[in-house]
Design a protein around this nucleic acid. Structure first.
Lengths: 219, 219
DNA sequence: CGCATTTTTGATTCTTATCAAGACGAGTGG
DNA sequence: CCACTCGTCTTGATAAGAATCAAAAATGCG
């Protein structure tokens, strides 16, 4: 998973009118800053993190975007925000001219997610944050395969590394690790490989995410 | 500062086409939930908090809105958000029909603020959060009166109580108190009355808000 | 003037961060 | 093919920052 070469330029001055597809490697930064006002980008496959950094390097991931989500100068503060692919991704660039409705909807969606995330950051415990994150990622990235027994287990690829989860959730990677391990011990989730997560007890995870007390039973 | 009587209804079914002004007392909730999609509300005077609550009562104030800011179903998630006046306020209700541009700009402004606030909540220390908040509130609410000495001191009414600041910044009211007291001891700010704040050393406060180390010198 | 609310300060606890070390897995070169 | 290395993940020990608990001081209101 080595960070790959340079940076694919999005929305260069010579805007093309037709949609243009690009593939980007994992861990590649996506340049938003130079892009024109109209240039917009749609994620077709993969996973992209939108983030901001403080002067001293502290980082907060504002949102994790999966397929279907869009990004661009009309949607984020490109002076302050950066973006990076967290998985091999495929994106489409287009000039959002007449699409005010689409932009407005995406803007609203982004805002609602940002507000929910603010509640998470400001008022939820570490365990609640991690539980919430897992459910959100399952929604965005799970291929919903139910096991033969009819028992609904959701499995998904966690494109985020522990440090990414930490930077998204306002925690440290160690705390994220401990929460995931605790969930695993409590059989809320399961994983052998650290990036393939199965949600085994969605109801309990949802209760936890919503702020229920949580009976911590050690293994 | 007693919480006042009932709740002024905004955007009742019988929408009027003409802008309508309302005065609301301090600490009065503003009902967003029932309002129609088009009904929008502009703050003319005063101060309004937009917030969300968790099931167990934990509260996070998402934004503090001063004069000029707008609010409504097209701008916030009215299923989850509540609003409350924090000062005697005057608001104008109108049907935002043709005003897509205004709505989009307000939406973008709201999103940019939400994202900056997420960074604050996720990655800043208590002191940094309080410093950032004071600067933001000064921008929104200060009547910029420079003292005769040419020394630029900004004074403003802190419409928020300590608990409101805490709920905005993801802290407790005691921590907010301690930060304010520390700033006062360090002569970054001054106040005799807890709601009238003077910024005495804006540069230092800005440095702190941006994340500089801060030499804590006790009194 | 007295009561209720809000603010301030102090003592203590708790959660999470920090520091440190080892485990695991993937890729590389001998 | 195996030893080695690098990056990530996990776990443990300790420290720090903020929360909680508690009580007193201001402040505002009736």
């Amino acid at each position: 998973m080595g960070a790959s070469a340079p940076v694919p330029l999005i929305g260069n001055p010579t805007d093309r009118r037709l949609p243009k597809q690009t593939r980007i490697a994992s861990r590649t930064p996506i340049i938003l800053e130079g892009s024109s006002y109209r240039t917009t980008l749609r994620i077709l496959e993969g996973c992209v993190a939108l983030y901001q950094e403080l002067a001293d390097g502290r980082r907060l991931i504002l949102d994790i975007l999966g397929p279907g989500r869009i990004l661009g100068a009309r949607l984020v503060d490109i002076r302050r925000c950066k973006a990076m692919a967290l998985a091999p991704s495929s994106i489409e660039t287009f000039a959002a001219d007449g699409e005010d409705g689409i932009i407005a909807d995406a803007l609203r969606h982004m805002l609602f997610r940002a507000q929910a995330h603010a509640v998470l950051l400001g008022r939820k415990s570490a365990a609640e944050r991690v539980a919430t994150a897992l459910l959100d990622l399952a929604d965005q990235f799970a291929r919903k395969s139910r096991s033969p027994s009819g028992n609904s287990r959701t499995t998904f690829t966690l494109h985020l590394q522990r440090i990414d989860l930490a930077d998204w959730l306002g925690l440290t990677l160690e705390t994220v690790c401990r929460c995931l391990s605790a969930f695993k011990r409590s059989r809320l989730i399961a994983f052998d490989h650290p990036e393939i997560i199965t949600i085994s007890d969605r109801a309990a995870l949802e209760a936890l995410a919503a702020g229920s007390p949580l009976a911590a039973r050690a293994a």
